[in-house]
């Protein structure tokens, strides 16, 4: 005779095992919002623009890193980036600064190409994911003010990339200084 239901009991031992381990620190659940899953540095949600400055400051044309070269708009797969190149107020000639910058959040696919291919470290991927809201018509077109964050903020979310960037810039500056120093005596002589 076959006894049915033994498999069921066998299966329940897994449940029992998990029940017991849950009292020994083996809980797998991350109780959001009290606790959050640790996000790795490369985590990407929406793009952000970087300006040189501290948190709480407002970005200015002098501090913005973007040069309006347009590479981010050109690599963007769903074409959700819109850039207006700035003009010199005195001469009306185009300058290497963005005066307007839009990202249509409802088209963006969070692929990170803009950040990957930006030659000026001006656009990066933000970690903020708590973005749910009751409206999209106005608030989902991020403009240049909404997009800008400070280098201080960026250094906090992306410590490794920030460290690499600083090291690279320092190496470049050193190289330049060395080249200048090597050139000087020659010029004098």
């Amino acid at each position: 005779m076959r006894i049915y239901g033994l498999e069921l009991l066998r299966g329940l031992t897994i449940t029992l095992g998990h029940f017991v381990t849950s009292y020994m620190g083996g809980i797998f659940t991350v109780p959001y919002p009290e606790k959050r899953l640790k996000t790795p540095e490369r985590f990407r949600v929406l793009p952000m623009l970087i300006f040189d400055g501290k948190e709480g400051e407002k970005w200015k044309t002098e501090t913005e890193r973007c040069t309006a070269c347009g590479i981010c708009a050109k690599v963007c797969p769903p074409q959700c980036i819109w850039i207006v190149q700035g003009k010199d107020p005195a001469t009306a000639k185009p300058v290497a600064k963005a005066s307007e910058f839009f990202i249509d959040v409802d088209v963006c696919m969070n692929c990170g190409f803009c950040a990957e291919f930006c030659p000026f470290d001006a656009i990066k991927m933000d970690h903020k994911f708590e973005l749910g809201s009751g409206e999209r018509d106005k608030s989902h077109i991020f403009d240049i003010n909404r997009l800008h964050v400070s280098t201080e903020y960026y250094a906090e979310t992306h410590p490794r990339a920030w460290g690499e960037e600083q090291a690279r810039k320092k190496a470049e500056a050193d190289k330049k200084a060395a080249a200048l120093a090597a050139k000087k005596p020659e010029g004098q002589g």
Binding site: P33, D106, F129, E130, L131, G132, G134, H140
Partner: peptide
């Protein structure tokens, strides 16, 4: 957009939004 046809209470940006983003929307 689904809001062309149905009224929406909460929109979540992201592609795809992470599970925590969905929980945030639920709280909203």
């Amino acid at each position: 957009g689904i809001d062309k046809f149905l009224p929406v209470d909460v929109y979540i940006p992201g592609c795809p939004p992470t599970p925590q983003a969905l929980l945030h929307a639920l709280i909203t």
